[in-house]
Computed example of a mutant assay.
Amino acid sequence: MTETVVVLGAGYAGAGAIMSLEDALGEDTDLVWVSDNDYHLVLHESHRCIRDPSVQEDVTIPIESIKSPSTRFIQGEVTGLDCDDREVSLADGSTVAYDYALVTLGSQTAYYGIDGLEEHSLTLKSLDDAFEIHDQVKEAAREATADEPAQVVIGGAGLSGIQTAGEIAEFRDMHHAPIDITLVEALEEIFPGNDPELQGALRKRLLERDIEISTDDPITEADAEEIHFQSEESLAHDVFVWTGGITGRDAMGDASLENEHNRVNADATFETSDDRVFALGDSAIVDQPDGPCPPTAQAAWQAAEVAGGNVARALHGQPLSEWTHEDKGTVVSIGDAAVAHDVVGVPINTFGGPAAEVLKKGIAARWIRDVGGTARAAQAWSDL
C-alpha cells in the first residue's frame, strides 16, 4: 500500500528535507510538498531587495527547479493540522491526507502585546515585505529634504534588523537620499546574546554607515507618527520596520502537538508529541544538549538532511538518528560590508573586509547551487 509523506513549507528546512526525502524514499511512497508560494526564498538574502527589488530573480528559486517530477506540489496556505485524522487543512477549504507529516512552516513576527506595534510597523518575513519596505523608504525619501530628512526606524537589532538597516543605508547612499536611520534595541547591546567582540565589530560598522543606534530602552507603544519607549522618550518615524522576534505560525495553534507559542516541540530526532509528525526549522523548538536549537538558516540546512532521513526510517520501522547542531560561525552583512565571527577553520576570531564579504556571498551561493544549480548560483553572485 502506498504511503503519503507531506512536507509543509518551502523555506530552508522544507527545501532541504524534500531533497533528502527524494533520496531516501522509494517509488512506493507518495511525496507531497505544500507551500504558500511556488518558489523557495533565500530568506537570509531577501533584505537585498530593499535596496533593489530586481534582486528577487536571484533570491527566489522555483519549486519546479528544486523537486523531482515524481514529487507532487500543492500551492496553498496551511491553516491547520489534524493529527487524529491525519489531515492538513488549506485556506481554500481543501485537505491533504498524510501518513507522515514534516512541519517546516517557518515563523511569523512576534509583537509581544505592544500596543500599536503590529498596526504601525512593517516586517521582513517575505519577498513582498522587502518590496513594501523599499517602496515606503523610497516614498519617504521623495517627500523629504536635507533640512527635514525622512526618519526610518528599525526595531530589533538582531540579524534581520542589522541587515535591514544596512540595506536602507545602501539605498540612501546610492540615491543621495535625505534619510536618517535609527536602529533600536530593547536590550543593552545589539545582536543580543552574542560575543561582545562580534557586537563591537557590528556596532562599529553600523556607525560608519551613519546608522544611529539606541539600546537598553524597550518600546512600549507605537502609533502612526511616533514610537514610545519605557524611558518615556519618543521617536518620530516615517517608516518603521519591526524585526524584534518570532513566534510560530497560527496554523499550529489548534494542532494537538506540544508547542510553545505555536512553535512545535521536537526532540533531537525531530519527532514531536505525535509519532507521525516531525518538525524542524523556525516552526519547531528542537531539543539539543545545550538548549533549543537556534532558529537560523544554518541550523535548518544542517537539520533537513537528518530529518528527511528520519521520516523515511520511521516509515520503514527503522531506528531514528539523533541530530546535533554544529555552529559553523556567524556572518552578518551591513550593506555591501560584512562581519564574520568564529568561522570554522579560520584562525581569526572576528574579521571584516573583503574576506568577510566573499564569505557571505559564498554561503548564499552555495545554498543556491545546492537547491537550484551552479548556473543559478553564478548568476546571483553579484547581487548577494
Rank of each mutant, 00 (worst) to 15 (best):
E3S: 08
L8Y: 03
A15P: 00
A15S: 13
A17V: 09
W33Q: 02
Y39Q: 03
V42E: 06
V42F: 04
E45S: 13
S46I: 13
R48E: 12
R48K: 15
Q56M: 07
E57N: 12
T60I: 09
I66C: 07
R72N: 11
G80Y: 02
G80L: 13
D84A: 07
D85T: 13
L90V: 10
L90E: 07
L90Q: 12
L105G: 01
G113Q: 14
D115Y: 11
E118R: 15
S121K: 12
L122M: 13
K125G: 11
I133P: 08
I133Y: 08
D135G: 10
Q136H: 13
V137A: 05
A140C: 00
A141W: 01
E143A: 13
E143M: 12
A146H: 02
V152R: 04
I154D: 04
G155I: 14
L159R: 04
G161W: 00
F171N: 03
H176D: 15
A177M: 02
I179C: 09
I179Y: 04
D180W: 09
V184P: 02
E188S: 14
G193Q: 08
N194D: 07
D195W: 01
P196D: 00
Q199I: 05
L207P: 00
I213M: 04
D216N: 14
D217V: 07
I219V: 15
T220N: 11
A224T: 11
E226V: 14
H228K: 15
Q230G: 11
E232D: 14
E233C: 06
S234R: 14
D238Q: 10
G244F: 07
T247N: 08
G248T: 09
G248C: 11
A251C: 14
M252E: 04
D254C: 06
S256G: 01
L257T: 00
E258I: 10
N259D: 00
R263G: 00
F270R: 06
T272C: 01
R276I: 08
L280T: 09
G281C: 07
S283R: 03
A284M: 04
V286T: 12
V286E: 02
C293E: 06
P295W: 07
Q302L: 07
A303H: 00
A307Y: 02
G308I: 05
V311A: 10
V311Q: 03
R313S: 07
R313Q: 07
L315W: 04
Q318F: 03
E322L: 06
T324E: 11
T324K: 15
H325Q: 10
H325A: 03
G329V: 04
V339H: 01
V339A: 02
A340Q: 08
H341K: 02
V344P: 00
V344R: 13
G345P: 05
P347H: 05
P347F: 03
F351E: 00
G353C: 05
V358S: 06
K360W: 08
I363W: 02
I363P: 00
A364L: 05
R366N: 09
G373K: 11
A378T: 12
A378V: 11
A378Y: 09
A378K: 14
A380P: 01
D383A: 15
